[in-house]
Amino acid sequence: MKQTKTIFLEGLWGNNPIARQILGICSALAVTNLMKNSLVMGLGLIFVTAFSELTVSLIRQWTPKHIRMMVQVLIISAYVILVDIFLKAYFPEISTALGPYVGLIITNCIIMGRCEAFAQANPPHVAFIDGIAMGTGYTLVLLTIAFVRELLGFGSLFGIQILGDSWVSWSIMIMPPGAFFMLGILIWILHSIKKEDQEVAK
């Protein structure tokens, strides 16, 4: 139980994949102009990371060391294709909106990184929890960025209009530069808070 808590704290805060490890930046920039897309992307990533880590961990004793990367990529792609098929069948509109980004979960460094760094050395249930924790950390950062971008760029949240007609949308927020600004500012803020933590602990 205590271990679970530690893993979650690591994923959400101490070792947050985007803010700390600076992994998965590409998708964090690409899909964060709408909160709905960010949420679906995040859920997809949680699913893929958790199950890939579980599978990699389950077969780690039998996996020959020198081909482990190949095996990991294979497992990750299988899960990503699963997510893609699922979205196409049951949520065709979200599937169209995310377009190629679902397939690009395969190249998200977070999954590969966690499989290699964590799942290879830990028992299955711990690896599974780590996958959920890391995926959640990623999702939270995505949602934070999307919150600001959608609110300022469209005046809405999850597609529901929040700001009135008098609001002039900042179109830069829904274009790529908006993502760069937001991500930069967010990582800056998180790093300054973290530094204070360390100094207090000393």
């Binding site: 780690r60 039998w62 020959p64 190949m70 299988a78």
Partner: peptide
Amino acid sequence: MAKNKRHNRYSYSIGFMVLITLITIGALA
């Protein structure tokens, strides 16, 4: 992990890869 010598033989690696590919393809199909 992989203490066993046979894990490093080519035939084992190839067999392992083929097997795991078949399993994942089967499931996805």
